[in-house]
C-alpha cells in the first residue's frame, strides 16, 4: 500500500526561490553559522502556510529570544526531546480544524534528533505522522557549548572529548542516523548539505509536496564548534561530500538513489580546515580515511540493494 500520495512538484531553483524572508535578518546566530542557511531556504520553500516547531537548540535561542523572533510563521517550542511528536500533535490538531493544507515542520539539531530526541522521532516515524522533520547536523551539542553527540565524528575535539595527552578527541564513530531513519520505511528520507544547494532545495521541495513522515538530515557546519574560519562553512561542507565523510542520498518509497557520487578525495584536506581535528595523529587520520572508504563501500552496496530495478 502506498504510504503517501506524491504531490505535483514544481522545481524551485536558487533563481526562483521567493525573495520574501519568513526567517528574518536580525537573528543572533554566530557569524558563518550553517543552520540559518538551511532554515532560510527551507522557509522560502515551505512558504507562509506553515507551522514550525523547535526543540531546545541553538536555533531556538538565536531564532528568537522573547519578545523578539525571526520567524514570521507560527512557532512552538515545548521541550528538547519531543520535536517529532509535538509536530505530529500540531498536525492532528490542524486536521481536526479542517486546516489539512498547512505544512508542519520541525527543525532540530543532531543531538536533539538522534540522541535525546530519538525515541519520539522513531515513534512518529513508525506511526507515519504527516510531518516534515529537518535535522541540521552540526555534529555536536553546540547550544550548550560544543559537547560530543552521537553524530560527532571520530577524532573530533569537543569539550567532552578534549584533545588530551592520553586520549585525543572522540574515540567512537558518527551514528548513521539517515540509514536508521530509512529502516523505518517512511515515505521519504534524504540527506543534504549546505554545500550542495540545488540538491538541498530539490529535496526540501520534494519533501514538502509529499504526505506522511518525511525526514531530512542536512549537513550544516558550525564554525564556532568546528574551530574554523567563518567564511569556510560552505566550502567545508562541499569537502565533506567530496571526501566521502557525508553521503548525499535519498530513499523514496523504499527506493534509494545516490545523488552525488563521492569523489573520495583524501580526507586530509577536509580535516585540515577544522581546528577540531588539529590534534589528530597520522594514525587517527588513517582510521578516519578507512572509515570513509568503508562507509562509501557500504553506501554503494546499500544504494544498489534498494535501487529502482530491484523493486518488485
Amino acid at each position: 500500500m502506498d504510504r503517501h500520495q506524491g504531490g505535483e512538484t514544481i522545481a524551485i531553483t536558487i533563481k526562483t526561490l521567493p525573495k520574501e524572508e519568513l526567517f528574518t535578518s536580525g537573528h543572533t546566530a554566530c557569524g558563518g553559522c550553517g543552520s540559518p542557511i538551511v532554515v532560510r531556504a527551507a522557509m522560502k520553500i515551505l512558504g507562509e502556510n506553515t507551522v514550525t516547531y523547535f526543540p531546545a537548540c541553538c536555533l531556538l535561542v538565536f531564532g528568537g529570544t522573547y519578545p523578539h523572533n525571526a520567524f514570521k510563521v507560527p512557532y512552538l517550542h515545548v521541550l528538547f526531546e519531543n520535536s517529532a511528536v509535538c509536530a505530529a500533535g500540531i498536525k492532528h490538531a490542524l486536521n481536526k480544524q479542517g486546516k489539512e493544507d498547512v505544512n508542519v515542520v520541525a527543525f532540530a539539531g543532531d543531538g536533539g534528533t538522534g540522541d535525546i530526541g530519538f525515541q519520539a522521532l522513531s515513534g512518529a516515524a513508525e506511526r507515519n505522522e504527516d510531518i516534515l522533520y529537518i535535522c541540521y547536523d552540526n555534529e555536536a551539542y553546540m547550544n550548550t557549548g560544543i559537547q560530543r553527540s552521537g553524530s560527532t565524528p571520530f577524532g573530533a575535539w569537543t569539550t567532552t572529548t578534549p584533545a588530551g595527552t592520553k586520549i585525543g578527541g572522540k574515540e567512537l564513530f558518527k551514528k548513521d542516523l539517515p540509514k536508521i531513519m530509512m529502516a523505518h520505511n517512511v515515505p521519504y528520507v534524504a540527506t543534504a548539505s549546505v554545500g550542495h544547494p540545488a540538491d538541498m532545495i530539490r529535496k526540501i521541495e520534494k519533501a514538502k509536496n509529499m504526505k506522511g513522515f518525511r525526514y531530512l538530515q542536512i549537513f550544516a557546519p558550525c564554525p564556532t564548534g568546528w574551530r574554523m574560519d567563518t567564511s569556510k562553512t560552505v566550502e567545508v561542507a562541499k569537502k565533506a561530500v567530496n571526501s566521502g565523510m557525508w553521503t548525499l542520498f535519498e530513499m523514496e518509497d523504499g527506493v534509494v538513489t545516490l545523488n552525488v557520487k563521492p569523489k573520495m578525495e583524501p580526507v586530509d584536506d577536509y580535516l585540515k580546515m577544522q581546528g577540531r581535528f588539529r590534534h589528530l595523529t597520522d594514525e587517527q587520520i588513517k582510521i578516519i580515511q578507512g572509515w570513509a572508504y568503508k562507509k562509501n563501500e557500504m553506501d554503494l552496496k546499500f544504494v544498489e540493494a534498494f535501487s529502482e530495478d530491484k523493486k518488485e
Partner: peptide, 22 residues
C-alpha cells in the same frame, strides 16, 4: 484523532502541542 504514542512523555507532548494549536 487518536495518537497511540510510544511513551507518556510523547503522549503529554502531543497533547500540549495539539492544545497549543487550539
Amino acid at each position: 484523532a487518536f495518537m497511540r504514542c510510544e511513551s507518556e512523555h510523547s503522549a503529554m507532548s502531543a497533547c500540549v502541542a495539539a492544545s497549543a494549536t487550539g
